[in-house]
Design a binder for these strands. Structure first.
Lengths: 206, 206
DNA sequence: GTTCTATCTTTACGGTGTTAAGATAGAGAC
DNA sequence: GTCTCTATCTTAACACCGTAAAGATAGAAC
């Protein structure tokens, strides 16, 4: 029996967190487009209007979940970057950690990057949390380019972008399914990450 | 005054195409999540039930638009690959063409990759059109790895994946907005693509 | 000109996000 | 302990949505 956080009391006492949990459960089952505020209220054992005392609207519930996701990603990136002193190794660990987060927390990643993406992008808390999570990558790349002239700062931005694009694209394609239909044979995702990042590191094929 | 394709005749005569056009217009204005079958019917000067004589449901209208988008992408990739004989140059042209397609046809790209992504992925026509568009990249990479042993075919798949991830990630991040909030300064997208692909080609920073 | 059929309309159903107004209960003041 | 205040919940209502069923229309085929 799934724990949905229902209560028989008139005042739930913990509704905000319960709604967020059940939001994730619902998206996991029905996909991010099938998520419904009324149903999340139903599952939480509460009336359709109750969520509005904790979130301004449907979008803000998703935003709260997204912020939580970015904080988890931030934490994962922090742990990954602590594993290596060498900035090159660290960079690769960060990339792997990024993709593995997407794989292991599909639902969060969906909400973070594509749940009604338009409104979410205009939420300051979401954008700040996202920036925090990306800090590790930027710092590591900055370490690889110790010079500090202006032209170099541009190179750093481009490098961040290139790395981020790579891992974000890998994660997105994995989640969107095309990877599974491609004949990647018996490759599992972890092996795939290693090979892809390794190949990029070698600068081959581009 | 925008051309919406209305007609006063009982039989519209061109409704299927009109619906697809207005679908794109609507998504451009209100985003892919704000798109509504009823409103597209309204704009097209037709009753809410009329679209059901041309598309099984809302999702299939989006799928039809997605297929159209993939065919356009296919055509763009074909043109890009015809520009160069050298497969290395061709690969870079394909990458640039991919990202430029996303930039210049934002709405299509949105529908193709993130409009209610779950149901769209299960549509055979969409998946086939997507495969067609990716053919050019795969062919070019195959040319770069002329050997044909089994281990090599795996390398090719990984290479395709790496390239695709890179450009798809670049396109996605550009469309999702984070690129604009990053301090990329006065870089425009075309310059950004060149720098990013160039950097990846040099194998630096990874 | 009659018939056939694709295309459209009207009507209806259950579901949705959201708001307004009222009920309840726990917390703090006395 | 009672009283009051306020956060939290409920009920009821609104407009809108996707979709289906049944009937109207008009252009095509004979």
């Amino acid at each position: 029996m799934a724990e949905t956080g229902r209560t028989d009391r008139y005042h739930h006492g913990n509704l905000r967190q319960t709604l967020m949990n059940n939001c994730l459960k619902l998206i996991e089952d029905k996909g991010v487009s099938g998520f419904t505020l009324r149903e999340v209220a139903r599952i939480s054992g509460v009336s359709p209007a109750a969520p509005y005392h904790h979130f301004r609207n449907r979008t803000e519930l998703l935003a709260a979940v997204a912020v939580m996701g970015f904080k988890m990603l931030d934490e994962a990136q922090r742990k990954a970057s602590e594993q290596f002193d060498n900035p090159g190794h660290r960079l690769k660990a960060l990339g792997k950690s990024y993709v593995m987060f997407a794989v292991n927390h599909k639902v969060y990643f969906h909400v973070m990057f594509r749940a009604n993406p338009e409104p979410l992008r205009e939420n300051d808390q979401v954008m700040n949390a996202a920036k925090q999570a990306l800090r590790h990558l930027e710092n590591t790349i900055r370490e690889l380019h110790p010079e500090t002239d202006e032209d170099n700062s541009r190179h750093i931005q481009v490098a961040v972008l290139a790395c981020w694009s790579m891992v974000h694209g890998l994660a997105s394609l994995w989640m969107d399914g095309p990877l599974k239909t491609m004949e990647t044979g018996k490759l599992d995702i972890e092996e795939l990450i290693d090979l892809t990042l390794g190949q990029a590191a070698a600068g081959r094929d581009f």
